[in-house]
Amino acid sequence: MKSESLWYIFINASLINNFVLAYFLGICPFLGVSGKMETATKMGAAVTFVMIISSVCAFGIHALLVAINAPFLQLISYIVVIAATVQLVEMVIKKMSPALFRSLGIFLPLITTNCAILAVALFQTAKGYSFFGSLAFAFGGGIGFTLALILMAGIREQLDFADVPKVVKGTVITLLVAGILSLTFMGFSGLGS
């Protein structure tokens, strides 16, 4: 289908096939940093930013690899470029805005091992999106990730005041909430088709 509009790609990546709740990508940060609203928002913003940059890089690499006929290098070059990008972004932010750098703290280096980032690069290649399609896909994915993270943080902040039985405290209750959120997001599945 060549007729997929940018808007459809964006809605698809952010709501219908939400990276966290439908594809299970980026579960580690989703469970790890969704405790507080503030950190969740910052993490979401940082991930969206890196996603867009690495998506652009991946598009270039893919074109290059096809040109030199070496598809088996795809995975290795993607991961190296993402790691380098994260490092570069870290340095730039440190130089430009030390305040933002301090507030992001350890989240920036952690993004390298966030599978959602690598998945954006792999999926956009697999689906053969155009340059702008890839951008819309990466932006949608980032927004979807942020949305899931913020929703989760909001619920968990309320959960702190609830009397949760000891045996389900921590990961178990978080997973149950995630399951219910995932059910809710299934309601979007008719959208845009």
């Binding site: 439908a22 389900v168 990961t171 399951g179 219910i180 995932s182």
Partner: peptide
């Protein structure tokens, strides 16, 4: 077998 089931089973 839907995504939500994965969360519930792991929980």
């Amino acid at each position: 077998i839907l995504p939500a089931g994965g969360f519930f089973t792991l929980a």
